[in-house]
């Protein structure tokens, strides 16, 4: 059952990613990316990461993609892609990406045989705090408290940057 769900979700995500690369229409690209994100949320549920799955749907498929669609609609959605690809960059790009993916897979296989099968006793993944969401929240606010605060500062800086960019634009034009 889990295996079937994995393959269905993997097929959906890879198909939507290919559609993202191949579509000329920007709105269809955005919808394809939303498909990828929802499929990945399903994968997170299969992996037992309920909090990440919910955040994936709310933050990525909801907020970020609505922002993308908002900008696409704001700029009118002109078809700027004439041929779909950049000139002369196609086969080198493909070569680079294939080499990168081969390196990743080799690294994953090496990790499979060397590192990742160490003696790890089943630790506090689900059980310590009575649930996945509570466990993640407890880690966020105890062990990862400092990165959590830094993230909020980053969000504040991003907000200020957007305000500054938009304001300068209205003053100049």
């Amino acid at each position: 059952m889990t295996t079937i769900a994995f393959w269905v979700l993997a097929t959906v995500s890879v198909g939507c990613a290919v559609a993202l690369l191949c579509q000329r229409n920007t709105v269809r690209c955005a919808v394809a990316l939303i498909g990828v994100m929802l499929a990945l949320a399903g994968q997170y549920l299969l992996l037992g990461a309920e909090f990440v799955a919910a955040a994936q749907v709310i933050v990525y498929a909801g907020a970020v993609m609505v922002l993308f669609l908002f900008v696409i609609m704001l700029l009118g959605g002109q078809p700027v892609e004439r041929a779909g690809e950049r000139r002369g960059l196609h086969s080198p790009a493909l070569l680079i990406i294939l080499a990168l993916m081969a390196a990743f897979l080799v690294a994953a296989a090496a990790g499979h045989y060397c590192v990742l099968r160490g003696p790890h006793e089943p630790a506090a993944l689900q059980t310590d705090f009575g649930g996945n969401v509570q466990a993640v929240a407890a880690w966020l606010l105890t062990r990862y408290l400092y990165p959590f605060e830094v993230t909020s500062v980053i969000l504040l800086i991003g907000m200020i940057a957007v305000v500054v960019l938009a304001k300068r634009e209205t003053r100049d034009t």
Partner: peptide
Amino acid sequence: TILFGLGALGVLVRRN
């Protein structure tokens, strides 16, 4: 890996 490669290919190949 497949999804990352497709994304990187899109970054290199797409115009928009």
